[in-house]
Simulated scan of single mutants.
Amino acid sequence: MAATLSDGSGTPVVFIHGLWLHPSSWQPWEELFQANGYRAMAPGWPGVADSVEATRGDPDAVGDRGVEEVTAHYAEIISGLPAPPVLIGHSFGGMIAQKLLGTGVGIAAVGIDAAQFKGVLPLPLSSLKATLPVFRNPGNRHKAVSLTPDQFRYAFGNAVEREESDRLYEQWAIPAPGRPLFEAATANFSPHSPVAVDAGSPGRPPLLLVMGGKDHTVPEAISKSEFKHQNGPDVTTDLMEFADRGHSLTIDGGWHQVAAACMTWVGNHIPAMA
């Protein structure tokens, strides 16, 4: 999916989606940040079409895409920006934002319910259940997998009413590649895992990790472990919790509360990096 940076002269912000959500789900966030002086864009993963419908209609285009390919895709896009951006990612997008930040790409990052990276050990049962649609078939490693409304309800919409969960599913859900989940599952047994992150290294730009207290897909145990890995000497790493929110916290009716808190954090840390 092609995406362009909004007009203006403010700090660029790049939004990175995760599995099963179309990048256009970031549109309210883009509009909020733009209204506050930032320049925003939300490029899709490789193979993601411009619309939800088109992506659903060609699932093979997004299949068999791994974390390294997706990270390189975003790094190439960012290299063409007029200034280094703030990176804001959700789920696997949050982990990719941390990978990019650790390599010197970006002036700050926000990882919202970020997928676990190499070295993060907690694996709660709810995470296993949320990702079972992929892991139940080893052949899904090289395929795109779609969620049913019930599966989306458990993995994303458990903290909202069923009616809202179903509406979010119809509005934003797309097929997603299975390979990133298999890469994450084997990360701690692989010396050169693609989900490795240069965590907590001295001089790393500021990082905010956001967790939803009711998240089934990325429970708070994972976010807290990521924070411990990222909270090294001579770096700024913050942890923010929304206790009553699930994995849909970036797109459901409470998105503005999360977005405003993230934007405030970014505003408090960007001047120090200028």
Rank of each mutant, 00 (worst) to 15 (best):
T4D: 11
L5A: 04
L5S: 04
L5G: 01
S6Y: 05
S6L: 00
G8Y: 05
V14I: 07
V14Y: 00
F15K: 10
I16L: 10
H17M: 12
G18W: 06
W20H: 06
P23M: 01
S25M: 12
Q27A: 15
P28F: 03
P28C: 02
W29Q: 12
E31F: 07
L32D: 11
L32Q: 07
A35I: 06
A35H: 12
A40M: 01
A40N: 00
P46L: 00
V48R: 00
S51P: 04
S51F: 04
E53M: 09
A54Y: 01
R56N: 08
D58M: 02
G63C: 02
D64N: 11
R65D: 00
R65L: 07
V67E: 00
V67I: 14
V70F: 04
V70T: 14
Y74R: 09
I77Q: 05
G80E: 05
L81E: 02
L81T: 00
P85W: 07
V86Y: 05
V86N: 00
L87M: 12
G89R: 09
G89Q: 09
G93Y: 00
M95Q: 03
Q98P: 07
T103V: 14
T103M: 11
I107W: 09
A108S: 11
I112H: 01
F117Y: 13
F117P: 00
L121S: 12
L123W: 13
L123Q: 13
L123F: 14
S126R: 13
S127N: 14
L128K: 13
K129H: 11
A130Y: 02
L132Q: 14
V134F: 11
F135T: 11
R136C: 15
R136T: 15
N137G: 11
N137I: 06
P138M: 07
N140D: 02
N140A: 07
N140H: 11
K143C: 06
A144V: 00
S146Q: 09
L147K: 07
T148R: 10
D150F: 02
Q151N: 07
Q151Y: 01
Q151T: 08
R153T: 13
Y154R: 10
F156K: 02
R162E: 13
E163H: 08
R167M: 06
R167L: 01
R167Y: 01
Q171L: 09
A173K: 00
P175G: 01
A176D: 07
A176Y: 01
A176S: 15
A184G: 14
A185Y: 04
A185Q: 04
A187L: 01
A187G: 08
N188K: 02
F189L: 15
S190E: 10
A196W: 10
A196G: 14
D198T: 14
R204C: 09
P206C: 13
L208G: 11
G212V: 04
K214S: 03
D215G: 12
D215V: 07
H216F: 05
T217Q: 06
T217C: 06
P219C: 13
E220Q: 13
I222E: 03
S223Y: 05
K224D: 12
S225C: 05
K228N: 15
T236W: 03
D238Y: 11
M240F: 12
E241S: 15
E241Y: 04
F242P: 10
F242A: 05
D244Q: 11
D244W: 03
G246N: 07
G246K: 09
H247S: 00
L249I: 14
D252V: 07
G253P: 02
G253W: 03
G254A: 14
M263F: 05
T264D: 12
V266I: 15
G267L: 03
H269S: 06
H269T: 07
I270Y: 04
I270G: 05
